[in-house]
C-alpha cells in the first residue's frame, strides 16, 4: 500500500519537475512547483499513516508544507506583478534578454 501511494506521489512529483523546468511563463512554473508540493504532502501523510505510529509531528510537517506553499504562492504572485509592472514581461525569456 505505502509503495503504491509513493509511486503515485513520485508520478505527480515528476510531472511537477517537468512543468517547472519546461514552462516559460512565470505562473506556469509556479504550477509545477505546486504540483511538487502536492506530491510531498501525499508522501508525508503516507509515511505518517504507515510508518510512524501516528506521530502528530507528521501532521505538523504537512501543515508547515502547506504554509510554505501559501508563502511561495503569495510571494510568487507579488513578484510576477512587480516584474510585469516594471518590465511588461510575462515569460522568463524576456527577462533574460533584458539582463544586459
Amino acid at each position: 500500500m505505502i509503495e503504491l501511494i509513493l509511486v503515485f506521489s513520485a508520478a505527480i512529483f515528476g510531472i511537477g519537475v517537468y512543468g517547472a523546468l519546461s514552462q516559460q511563463s512565470f505562473v506556469m512554473i509556479m504550477m509545477g512547483l505546486e504540483l511538487m508540493i502536492n506530491a510531498t504532502v501525499l508522501a508525508i501523510v503516507v509515511f505518517w499513516w504507515g510508518t510512524t505510529g501516528g506521530d502528530p509531528r507528521g501532521q505538523l510537517l504537512v501543515v508547515v508544507v502547506l504554509a510554505v506553499m501559501a508563502i511561495e504562492a503569495a510571494m510568487g504572485f507579488a513578484l510576477v506583478t512587480a516584474v510585469y509592472r516594471a518590465r511588461k514581461a510575462d515569460i522568463t525569456e524576456k527577462l533574460k534578454r533584458l539582463r544586459n
Binding site: 504554509a67 508563502i71 504562492a73 507579488a78
Partner: peptide
C-alpha cells in the same frame, strides 16, 4: 483587487491552524 488576493493567501493559511 490583486493586493487583497495576496492577503487572502496568508489568511487562508491561518485557518489551517
Amino acid at each position: 483587487y490583486y493586493v487583497m488576493a495576496l492577503l487572502f493567501l496568508a489568511f487562508d493559511m491561518e485557518m489551517v491552524f
